[in-house]
Simulated assay, not measured.
Amino acid sequence: MNRWPLLLGRSVVAAVACVGLGLGLSGCFTERRNEGAQLYATHCASCHGDQGQGLERLIPPVAGADYIAQHRAELPCLIRKGQKGPLVVNGVDYNQVMPGHDDLTDSQITNLLNFVQQNWGNKNKPYTIREASELLQSCNGSDGQ
């Protein structure tokens, strides 16, 4: 009995399964890799601008913002709890309310911050999830996820 057709058939099925699995996995990783940009677009861009430019003297920019580098330890809590009161970004005074985002996990906050840390002229060290979670503990904001 010739087994070539049976072996060939199994090889084709295995190849198709590997390709399908590979496409599925790459899709998952691609979504996770771009999560920071997606979170920024959903939660931040309506105020801070789609390119992080802010809104004149009303809403501070995150693009090329000295505040991002100078207040690294405060940023996770700023995202989680929001901000009200005065702050200075690139020498300009701002005093608006920024809503917090209790709906984001520690991991999502990390990805969002890393997106901001590495885009629009910002060249700051990325956060680890552990670092962001530890910093969130200072404002009782860590969810451990």
Results as ranks from 00 to 15, higher is better:
Y127W: 00
A37F: 10
N95Q: 07
R3H: 12
R130V: 13
S46K: 12
S26Q: 14
V13F: 15
W4P: 00
S46M: 12
M1A: 10
G85H: 04
G36L: 01
N122F: 04
K123E: 14
N95V: 01
S26L: 12
D102P: 06
Y40T: 03
C77D: 08
R32N: 08
T42Q: 13
V92Q: 13
A132I: 01
E134C: 02
N34D: 10
R33Q: 13
G85W: 04
E131I: 00
A37L: 11
E56T: 11
N114P: 03
D103K: 01
L25Y: 03
G141F: 09
S138Q: 15
D103S: 07
Q108W: 05
A132F: 04
A14H: 05
L135D: 09
L136R: 00
L8M: 13
A41D: 14
G36E: 09
I68K: 09
G24S: 10
I129T: 12
G54T: 08
S46I: 13
D50Q: 14
P60M: 04
A63I: 04
L8F: 14
S138W: 06
K84Y: 07
L25N: 02
L7S: 07
L136G: 02
G36A: 05
L55H: 09
V89P: 06
L87A: 06
C47H: 02
